Simulated scan of single mutants.
Amino acid sequence: MSHSSDHHHMVLGNGTQISKFLLLGLSDEPEQQPLIFGLFLSMYLITMFGNLLIILAVSSDPFLHTPMYFFLSNLSFVDICFTSTTVPKMLLNIQTQSKVITYEGCIAQMYYFLLFIQLDIFLLTVMAYDRFVAICHPLRYTVIMNPILCGMLVLISWVIGALNSSLQSLMVLRLSFSTVLEIPHFFCELKQVIQLASGDTFLNNIVMYFGVGIFGGVPLGGILYSYSKIASSIHRISSAQGKYKAFSTCVSHLSVVSLFYCTGFGVYLSSATGHSSFSSATASVMYTVVTPMLNPFIYSMRNKDIKRALKMFLWKVSIKVQLVLVLKKCL
């Protein structure tokens, strides 16, 4: 299936010809494509719907206008953007039976993917700090976690995320590639793209691993530090009920963090041990598609406040719908 768009070459300043990248996807078996399409479309729709519901529930309920839920709705927004950078393009390619992604498209996908994964990590870290203040300094909580600090933390996360992903993407622009480039993945992943470059990629690898170390490792350190403090604080609470109450506010956050980091590390370990490229692509489905889809469920299952807000929100919506139907009948 060759399309006319397959033959556009782009000539860069230094005369190297860059054509297009081919995203090989999760499988090269044609009969598996409809299954993959159906699975990813449904996961994508669940992610959009679940995270939108969380945002709407939190913003419509004045009781949930607290730092914890402010960060949660930011996380939901980032998760929507995160899956939207990779899945729609993959679905489009399966639908049109083309594997092509343009050079610019690939760079853009890399930029946004890195930005949103960075934001995911930072928001999870900020949420750990929020739980730390709530449990270890409960009396000063409202003073410390004031609206200005919360806004600043989110803003700083965006700025650092944008700087890191710009740096990583600009580093790729200096690489030259031969003509047809097959990426054994369903999106343009930084590591895979660097591996395809012809010429010296030493500097790129250094910047990439430095980025992963600093922007993945330091936040994880912060999360672990917060939880060590939280654990010792809960340990000092005398009543079992008090212990449970303090711990239950952390359970959802802990689940989301462990899901995100375990799947992320799993992918990097599986690609480091040099398994087949398709298996590392399949492994990365876990943290790029499954985690953002499960986050809203993890947060709303254990959480009475979110459940209440969701019920209220859906009740208001259903009343509006009924009103519209009644009015239509009358007119």
Rank of each mutant, 00 (worst) to 15 (best):
residue 255 S to K: 06
residue 16 T to M: 00
residue 256 V to G: 03
residue 200 D to S: 15
residue 42 S to K: 03
residue 191 K to I: 09
residue 212 V to M: 06
residue 283 A to I: 15
residue 280 S to K: 09
residue 12 L to N: 08
residue 210 F to K: 00
residue 237 I to S: 01
residue 14 N to S: 10
residue 2 S to I: 10
residue 208 M to P: 01
residue 172 V to I: 11
residue 61 D to R: 00
residue 189 E to L: 13
residue 309 A to I: 04
residue 233 S to D: 01
residue 213 G to N: 12
residue 45 L to G: 12
residue 310 L to R: 06
residue 101 I to F: 04
residue 210 F to L: 10
residue 138 P to D: 11
residue 131 R to D: 09
residue 39 L to W: 02
residue 329 K to C: 09
residue 159 V to G: 03
residue 262 C to F: 15
residue 32 Q to W: 11
residue 34 P to I: 03
residue 15 G to V: 09
residue 266 G to F: 12
residue 154 V to Y: 04
residue 26 L to S: 03
residue 162 A to W: 02
residue 55 I to E: 03
residue 251 V to P: 00
residue 26 L to D: 07
residue 44 Y to V: 08
residue 311 K to S: 14
residue 279 S to H: 14
residue 43 M to K: 02
residue 217 G to N: 06
residue 316 K to I: 01
residue 246 A to S: 13
residue 251 V to Y: 01
residue 132 F to N: 12
residue 279 S to Y: 15
residue 311 K to T: 15
residue 94 I to T: 09
residue 320 K to F: 12
residue 205 N to P: 00
residue 129 Y to K: 01
residue 59 S to G: 08
residue 121 I to T: 15
residue 71 F to W: 03
residue 46 I to Q: 00
residue 239 S to W: 10
residue 103 Y to P: 00
residue 38 G to E: 07
residue 140 R to V: 06
residue 111 Y to N: 08
residue 238 S to N: 06
residue 233 S to E: 09
residue 137 H to Y: 14
residue 53 L to D: 08
residue 56 L to K: 11
residue 27 S to K: 02
residue 210 F to M: 07
residue 54 I to S: 01
residue 225 Y to N: 04
residue 63 F to R: 13
residue 128 A to Q: 06
residue 94 I to W: 03
residue 243 K to T: 13
residue 64 L to A: 13
residue 79 D to T: 10
residue 105 G to P: 05
residue 273 T to G: 05
residue 29 E to W: 11
residue 120 D to E: 15
residue 142 T to R: 11
residue 86 T to D: 12
residue 309 A to Y: 02
residue 87 V to D: 08
residue 238 S to D: 12
residue 85 T to R: 00
residue 52 L to Q: 13
residue 190 L to I: 14
residue 128 A to D: 08
residue 317 V to W: 11
residue 91 L to C: 08
residue 120 D to K: 08
residue 272 A to D: 08
residue 322 Q to S: 14
residue 137 H to I: 03
residue 204 N to I: 06
residue 141 Y to A: 01
residue 264 G to R: 05
residue 147 P to F: 09
residue 298 I to P: 00
residue 280 S to H: 12
residue 274 G to I: 07
residue 113 F to Y: 12
residue 227 Y to R: 12
residue 12 L to Y: 07
residue 309 A to H: 02
residue 291 T to P: 00
residue 223 I to D: 05
residue 232 S to C: 06
residue 134 A to F: 04
residue 146 N to A: 05
residue 88 P to R: 08
residue 285 V to N: 02
residue 279 S to K: 09
residue 166 S to L: 04
residue 133 V to R: 01
residue 2 S to K: 06
residue 249 T to E: 13
residue 63 F to W: 06
residue 299 Y to I: 01
residue 189 E to Q: 13
residue 160 I to L: 10
residue 287 Y to N: 06
residue 82 F to T: 07
residue 177 F to C: 00
residue 325 L to T: 14
residue 87 V to I: 15
residue 137 H to L: 04
residue 76 S to C: 14
residue 118 Q to D: 14
residue 133 V to A: 00
